[in-house]
């Protein structure tokens, strides 16, 4: 880290506006509700596949690079005051990975004709997205420690 002072960037590294992942989670929740209403029709499954691609982008490049975050920056952020503080992009990125896992399980379910598996997996992703959108609470992030506790030495 350099010691150069800048007028923006209150935290070291590339912080992101915490309302970005929140808005992305809200859009994700709407998409997943529509998936549940339409699936197992081809349109519903295609929508879930599209959501999986969005999760994959968020998981590999960070949620700030998803089309949902782009919409947030273009449409919502200009109408908001600057954020009180920026956030580390790592937790929301991990949450996208968790979303991707559920979406893939859902696709496997619908693809193999086990519709209930597809619906339940989609529902898990929906619960996580809603908790993030409404309460700014990251379910996947908490599962991380529990998973570590249970599996690691």
């Amino acid at each position: 880290m350099s010691t150069t002072t800048t007028h923006h960037a209150p935290i070291a590294g590339a912080g992101i506006d915490p309302r970005g992942p929140q808005a992305a989670a809200a859009i994700t929740a709407v998409v997943l509700v529509v998936v549940l209403l339409l699936a197992p029709s081809a349109l519903g499954v295609a929508l879930l596949a599209a959501q999986a691609v969005v999760f994959a982008v968020g998981s590999t490049r960070g949620v700030q690079h998803t089309p949902y975050s782009w919409l947030f920056r273009r449409l919502i952020r200009p109408r908001l005051a600057p954020p009180a503080e920026l956030e580390d992009p790592a937790p929301p990125r991990f949450a996208q990975t968790v979303g991707l896992v559920f979406a893939v399980i859902g696709l496997v379910g619908f693809g193999s004709g086990v519709d209930l598996l597809g619906q339940v997996a989609t529902a898990f992703a929906l619960v996580a997205a809603l908790l993030n959108a409404v309460f700014r609470f990251c379910l996947g992030c908490e599962m991380y420690l529990l998973l570590k506790r249970a599996t690691a030495r």
């Binding site: 209403l37 619906q119 529902a123 619960v127 908790l131």
Partner: peptide, 21 residues
Amino acid sequence: STGAWIAVAAVAVALAVGTYR
């Protein structure tokens, strides 16, 4: 439909967990 019921259940669970937290 089953999907709609599951969606309603998911929303209820999320609101309950979130409010508790």
